[in-house]
Write a protein that binds this DNA or RNA. Structure first.
Length: 200
DNA sequence: CTCACGATTAGA
DNA sequence: CTAATCGTGAGA
């Protein structure tokens, strides 16, 4: 059996543009460690939010609010926000300082810590543990405490397998029809035929 | 201060 | 298909 080799993503990767990071992070593994648990998921679906010129982005036309302030930092930080009063959306800030771009993690594939995920989600089916932006964050207990944390740390980081072999599907982003100008841009990426992507 | 609404989800 | 549920942001 061939040994899987992984390389931790470093800061420079997150300095790239949102669409580049969103696409290239597919197939990577997200690891979250706390005192006694390790949760790992394989990223299967992402969206790019390029910022200033994207009327779907929170930072469209340079809008800067207490909520999205962190996206104006350098790439590699975590941007979480509450949606519908109960769910947490998880993004990675990318690009350079004062260029407020973000990559939205929409779905992952459960790899490790599945029992804890089942407990937190209250469902048994593995396909339903993490197949949505606010489902996987429930499995991982993502909340406001993650805002501004480094995605390049010992507690939470992303690593890339040496070999990736899958087809990538490009599509328009989900749930941004309010963005009259950019709603149909192909900024959603997912691994073809993965049973763990969010459904539409 | 008021108030409409959301990068969603669960359930009928 | 609709309700849930409340922090957030825009405007008075």
């Amino acid at each position: 059996m061939k040994k899987l080799r992984f390389k931790k993503r470093t800061r420079a990767f997150f300095y790239r543009q949102a669409d580049y990071v969103a696409k290239n992070i597919l197939g990577d593994y997200l690891t979250l460690k706390n005192k006694k648990q390790i949760l790992i998921g394989r990223i299967v679906e992402t969206e790019a939010y390029p910022g200033i010129n994207d009327d779907a982005s929170h930072s469209f036309q340079g809008r800067l609010t207490p909520r999205n302030k962190i996206t104006y930092s350098q790439g590699g930080l975590i941007y979480v926000y509450l949606i519908y009063g109960k769910y947490w959306c998880f993004n990675i800030v990318v690009s350079k300082k004062d260029n407020p771009q973000a990559v939205f993690i929409r779905a992952i594939e459960p790899i490790q810590g599945i029992e804890l995920m089942k407990k937190r989600r209250g469902v048994e089916k593995e396909e339903k543990l993490t197949n949505g932006p606010c489902r996987w964050t429930q499995s991982f207990s993502i909340d406001k405490s993650f805002l501004g944390k480094e995605i390049i740390s010992k507690d939470i980081f992303i690593s890339s397998p040496a070999n990736k072999n899958f087809a990538i599907v490009k599509a328009k982003r989900v749930g941004v029809d309010y963005a009259t100008k950019s709603k149909d841009l192909p900024l959603r990426f997912y691994i073809k035929d993965s049973p763990f992507v969010s459904k539409k």
